[in-house]
């Protein structure tokens, strides 16, 4: 049973606790967090600021290893440098001194992927995301939505099976945000990547997260895990279910 469940879960977290700082100033960021995310599904993590959402993402990405509890990614203990895990942080982590093309190939450069493969893969992803014409520009010359897409392109170039996103669309205007949310869904439907995204937007959580994990703050704890099977359906936003779900999540957050 246990191994079965582990096989179906891309991410499985049990009893995760984490502290920041040492001695007197020690602050608990996460307390006894447990959840599982099935392979190929989407999951939204929502909670007030200070609920350790971003910290959790760092743990899942393998950048933060100083925790207690068990964190499994694809059945193995989380660790640094798992090739198929991609992380997109809030400011997209683009290097301002690299052109769009070089930003998109950065992961492949670092992993010393042969030039031919790098060229063809990056070209097709940039075309798919509508960035091809901008490949010779610097990030500062692009709009917020375009910058976000470079971040996504850079992540997708690595063929991830787990995509972690920290408030990916929070700094974008409403129209760009909805367009990018749809684009993300499209990528998810095509490649069936497991997507975990941290958000503070109830609407975004419901639109994108098949599972919604609601956090409370100080320290970060799981309040409830809500199943939201209709997430990912393009017309979900216009349905009654959507609004009922929004009310439910809002109540959990205000709890």
């Amino acid at each position: 049973m246990i191994s079965d469940a582990a096989d179906n879960n891309m991410v499985s977290v049990a009893g995760l606790s984490l502290y920041y700082g040492q001695g007197e100033g020690r602050v608990q960021a996460l307390r006894d967090v447990s959840f599982a995310i099935p392979r190929g599904s989407t999951c939204a993590i929502i909670g007030p600021s200070g609920s350790g959402k971003s910290t959790l993402l760092y743990v899942l990405s393998g950048l933060l290893l100083d925790f207690s509890g068990e964190v499994l990614v694809d059945g193995a203990g989380v660790g640094r440098g798992r090739r198929q895990t991609a992380l997109i942080l809030q400011d997209y982590g683009l290097l301002p001194w690299k052109k769009v093309w070089d930003n998109a190939t950065l992961g492949l450069d670092i992993r010393r992927v042969p030039a031919g493969e790098k060229q063809s893969k990056t070209a097709s992803i940039l075309k798919e995301l509508g960035l091809w014409e901008m490949r010779d520009r610097y990030p500062a010359q692009l709009s917020g939505g375009q910058r976000q897409r470079i971040g996504i392109a850079r992540a997708l170039a690595l063929d991830p099976d787990l995509l972690l996103m920290d408030e990916p669309f929070s700094s974008l205007d409403a129209l760009t945000r909805e367009a990018l949310q749809k684009q993300l869904l499209h990528i998810w439907l095509k490649d069936r990547i497991t997507i975990v995204l941290v958000t503070h937007s109830i609407e975004e959580a419901i639109f994108l997260g098949q599972k919604i994990i609601v956090f409370s703050a100080h320290p970060g704890r799981v309040v409830e895990i809500v199943d939201n099977p209709r997430a990912g359906q393009p017309d979900y936003r216009k349905t009654r279910d959507f609004y009922e779900m929004a009310t439910r999540v809002r109540e959990l957050l205000e709890h």
Binding site: Y58, L89, D91, I110, R111, L158
Partner: peptide, 17 residues
Amino acid sequence: SGELVNSVLSLGASRLD
């Protein structure tokens, strides 16, 4: 920015990278 460094680390970068 630490976030910038972390982003690049998450791509599998070594210290030298």
